[in-house]
């Protein structure tokens, strides 16, 4: 399970650059990144190597942030493995809120971040443990 940092950014020129520079200046490494956007604003979601440090410097610089618990999943890098994973969740009535890819820790694997309901996280982790082809990303 990962702690994902979500950052509220107005849809204004330079906001993304600002926040990335801030993280870079503080030696924070980004391992996964996605932007969910609307017409007026975006939510930048990051998996970083040092969540506490990122949280602190972002808050100090007046960014509106949120920390969310998400799953880091690794599957076989072959056709059908994504379907198998999502189907597994579906059979257990676990809904996928959103997902995005990230750097896998092992060659031949695909990795992605999945957000499910907060109260379904433990259950999801149990299900994955029992699966041979699916594992969680080592942090």
């Amino acid at each position: 399970m990962f702690k994902q940092v979500s950052i509220f950014l107005e849809n204004k020129k330079g906001r993304l650059k600002e926040v990335l520079k801030l993280l870079a200046d503080n030696n924070i490494d980004i391992r996964a990144l996605t932007i969910a956007e609307t017409a007026d604003y975006g939510v930048l979601r990051l998996i970083v190597d040092n969540v506490d440090k990122a949280e602190q410097i972002l808050k100090e610089n007046s960014f509106r942030i949120n920390i969310t618990n998400v799953l880091g999943i690794e599957i076989q890098d072959k056709s059908g493995s994504m379907y198998e994973f999502v189907n597994l969740l579906y059979q257990h009535n676990i809904n996928v809120e959103y997902a995005h890819t990230c750097t896998p820790s092992n060659v031949g694997k695909s990795a992605f971040i999945v957000r499910v309901d907060e109260d379904k996280i433990e259950e999801a982790l149990e299900i994955i443990k029992k699966c041979n082809d699916i594992s969680t990303i080592s942090e």
Binding site: Q4, S6, F8, A36, T38, V43, R45, R64, N66, R115
Partner: peptide, 15 residues
């Protein structure tokens, strides 16, 4: 301005 507690990670909540 969004407050700390109202900023949800989920766009649907913000909307």
């Amino acid at each position: 301005e969004l407050s700390e507690k109202s900023f949800s990670d989920k766009i649907s909540i913000l909307e």
